[in-house]
C-alpha cells in the first residue's frame, strides 16, 4: 500500500522523462480521438517495440556497469539467420526449429562471452570491442544468408514465435514481458543484480569488498548477447525470413530506450522498468507520427528532437536539485540579484 505508492513516486522521481510519455500520450489522444487510445493500437505499439524491448532486457546489464554493447543489432541478425538456415536445411522440421533456436541463442552467448573476456582480460574499452564485433558478426550474418533474403514460412512452431497471438496479445510481446520480469528479478532480487549496480557505481570498492567483479562483467555481456540473439530469432519469425540487414538501427533504438528510461551511460543508475517505458515512448512517438499522417522521412528527425528534449529536461531537473548556481552558456546574467 504505502510501499506501492512509494514505488510509483520513486519511478517518477528517478526519471522525470516519464512525464513526457504521459504528455505525448495525452496530446495524441486529443488529436486522434478514438484511434490512438484503443486496445488495438496499444497492441500494435507493443508489437512494434517488442524486438528492441527484448534486447533492452539484457543490454541494460553492460550499461549499468558503465559499459556498452553496440553489437546487439548484428547479433540479432546473425542469430536469426542461423536459425532460419538451420530450419531450411533440416527441411522445415520442428527438430530443425529447436536446433536452430538453441544454436542461435548459443551464438549470442558466445559473442557475449567474447566481449566479457576481452573487456576483463585485456582491458579493451567496451565501446571498441563491441563496435568491432558488430562488424564481424554482421559479416557472419552475410555469410550465413549468402547476402540473400531467405524466406521461411514453415513450420508452424517457428511462425509461432513472432506471429501467433496468446490471449489476444502477440507472442513476441509476451516474450518481452517475460524477459523484462526475469531482468527485474535478476536486478532487484539477486546478489548478481546488486553486484551489477555496485560494480557500476564503484568497481574498486567492490573489488576490495571481495566481489568477483570480472565474473559479473562477463555475465553482463553474456546476458546482452543472449537477449540480442533471442530478439533476432523472434524478428526472423515475425518477418518469416532471414536477412543480414534485419536489425539495422536496433543498436540505436536500444540505447535510446535505455537512456530515455533513466539509465546513466556512466553506469550505476537505471532500472528495467524505466528502460521498458523508454522503449514504449519511442514506440508511441513513431505510432503517433504515423497516425497523424506525417511522412516517414520526418519520423527520425522528430523522434530524436523529442528524445533530446526529454533528456535535456531531465538533466536540467537533476541539476536544479543539486542546488548549484545556475549557469547559462548563452545569456549574460543581468545584475538583477541585488
Amino acid at each position: 500500500m504505502k510501499n506501492n505508492n512509494l514505488n510509483i513516486k520513486t519511478i517518477f522521481n528517478k526519471s522525470q522523462k516519464l512525464w513526457i510519455l504521459v504528455v505525448v500520450m495525452i496530446i495524441l489522444t486529443v488529436l486522434q480521438p478514438g484511434v490512438f487510445l484503443t486496445f488495438a493500437n496499444m497492441k500494435s505499439i507493443l508489437l512494434s517495440i517488442s524486438i528492441y524491448g527484448i534486447m533492452v532486457c539484457g543490454t541494460i546489464f553492460p550499461i549499468l556497469l558503465g559499459g556498452i554493447d553496440l553489437s546487439v543489432g548484428a547479433v540479432a541478425a546473425a542469430a536469426g539467420a542461423f536459425t532460419v538456415v538451420q530450419i531450411v536445411n533440416s527441411g522445415y522440421t520442428n527438430q530443425g526449429v529447436i536446433i536452430g533456436v538453441c544454436g542461435g541463442l548459443l551464438l549470442g552467448i558466445i559473442v557475449g562471452l567474447v566481449h566479457g573476456v576481452i573487456v576483463t582480460r585485456f582491458n579493451v574499452p567496451p565501446f571498441l570491442i563491441t563496435l568491432a564485433t558488430q562488424n564481424i558478426v554482421y559479416g557472419v550474418a552475410q555469410l550465413l544468408t549468402g547476402n540473400n533474403v531467405i524466406a521461411c514460412m514453415e513450420p508452424k512452431l517457428f511462425a509461432f514465435l513472432g506471429g501467433e497471438r496468446v490471449l489476444g496479445v502477440p507472442f513476441s510481446v509476451w516474450i518481452m514481458i517475460f524477459m523484462a520480469l526475469i531482468s527485474y528479478v535478476l536486478l532487484n532480487k539477486t546478489v548478481f543484480g546488486r553486484s551489477i549496480y555496485a560494480v557500476g557505481g564503484n568497481a574498486e570498492a567492490c573489488f576490495l569488498s571481495g566481489i568477483k567483479s570480472k565474473t559479473i562483467i562477463v555475465l553482463a555481456y553474456v546476458a546482452s548477447g543472449f537477449t540480442a540473439a533471442m530478439a533476432g530469432i523472434v524478428l526472423a519469425s515475425m518477418n518469416r525470413q532471414a536477412i543480414a540487414k534485419a536489425a539495422q538501427g536496433y543498436d540505436n533504438f536500444v540505447l535510446t530506450a535505455l537512456v530515455v528510461g533513466g539509465a546513466s551511460l556512466m553506469g550505476g543508475e537505471g532500472t528495467i522498468t524505466g528502460a521498458i517505458w523508454g522503449a514504449f515512448l519511442v514506440g508511441v512517438i513513431s505510432n503517433g507520427l504515423r497516425l497523424l499522417g506525417v511522412a516517414s522521412d520526418y519520423h527520425g528527425i522528430i523522434k530524436c528532437i523529442v528524445i533530446i528534449a526529454a533528456v535535456a529536461l531531465d538533466a536540467n531537473i537533476r541539476y536544479k536539485k543539486s542546488g548549484l548556481q545556475k549557469k547559462s552558456l548563452f545569456f549574460k546574467k543581468n545584475k538583477a540579484q541585488a
Binding site: 539477486t190 546478489v191 548478481f192 546488486r194 553486484s195 549496480y197 555496485a198 557505481g201 564503484n202 574498486e204 570498492a205 567492490c206 576490495l208 569488498s209 571481495g210 566481489i211 550505476g268 543508475e269
Partner: peptide, 26 residues
C-alpha cells in the same frame, strides 16, 4: 574511491560484504 558505492543506499553498501549471510542461492 575505494570505500563505498555512492549511489547505493547505506543498507545496500553494507550488504556488499555480507551476501554470504544475507542471500541464499543467489
Amino acid at each position: 574511491n575505494q570505500g563505498f558505492t555512492p549511489l547505493l543506499s547505506i543498507e545496500k553498501n553494507i550488504a556488499l560484504t555480507n551476501y554470504d549471510t544475507i542471500a541464499s542461492h543467489g
